[in-house]
Design a protein around this nucleic acid. Structure first.
Lengths: 139, 139
DNA sequence: TTTAATTTTGTACTAATTACAATTTTAAAA
DNA sequence: TTTTAAAATTGTAATTAGTACAAAATTAAA
């Protein structure tokens, strides 16, 4: 994703492209992970020494409101963030703590109504032992 | 659920039935809600004036390990707890903040394996506007 | 160039959770 | 019954994520 594309996306969403905001966004497309606020801050402060943690919080909040990112709350007392491409669910390994994106469909994800309640968001978390950790324990 | 049944359940799970533990457990069966640590503490401290918040944390952690309760992490900076009866998912209303139990099945809940990862727990959260709040806004 | 609006920064604060040592309770052994 | 050891509870202090907010800096418009 090139800079012009980011600027175009920001414009569509009504986000003013400050240097800090573009850098935070770039973090997500360059590192396809599920970072915490702290990880993002620690990474970007190397490049932007004046960066404030409050800016990171503000920017992530804005991106979530504009549906560029979504929050992940999975067995942690720390919010992680997720770049929204196509709908997916998350798997977290209890051993290595890694979070995997799982692109698997399910009736729940499509449902817009349940017991009369209007559904606007779906968050599906699976927890267990990942492929790699299963292999390690077998050895 | 009578006291003898609670004691029997604790014995099965290998939980020593201290007065505090029994009272915390009773809170869940008497109030079918999704309480936070603070709510449980504030309620029980009336009956047990010497109760410590640390004991509540310890007890809830133990109950989660023993699979009597599970943690709910849904759009909050506060963990809530859920009594495990039969598998269900959660719906949270954005307006009134209430959490509903939804007893609806889905292929994801049954799945024990995904992309080679071994699945041990499922947490499904739906967020939106609940039936009651929808009615209120229509008026 | 001036002005207003927006964004960023930095500090102080709050609230949830954890660490840990001291005390109390419980259960087992003598 | 008394002694001893183990487990649970308590209370305090510390940690940490996140928020509030005002001042400074930046941007865009008049």
């Amino acid at each position: 994703m090139k800079k012009e594309e980011i600027l175009k996306l920001f414009k569509e969403k009504g986000i003013k492209p400050s240097f800090q905001r573009v850098e935070v966004f770039k973090y997500f497309i360059e590192n396809k992970t599920h970072p915490s606020v702290d990880e993002i801050f620690k990474h970007l402060v190397k490049k932007i020494p004046t960066l404030s943690i409050t800016t990171v919080y503000n920017t992530l909040k804005l991106f979530c409101q504009k549906k560029l990112l979504s929050e992940i709350l999975i067995e942690e007392n720390q919010i992680k963030f997720d770049f929204i491409e196509k709908p997916h669910i998350h798997f977290k390994c209890k051993k290595c703590e890694k979070i995997y994106d799982i692109f698997k469909m399910c009736s729940i994800i499509k449902c817009k109504e349940v017991n009369g309640h209007k559904v606007e968001e779906h968050h599906i978390y699976l927890i267990g032992t990942c492929k790699e950790c299963l292999l390690k324990t077998k050895k």
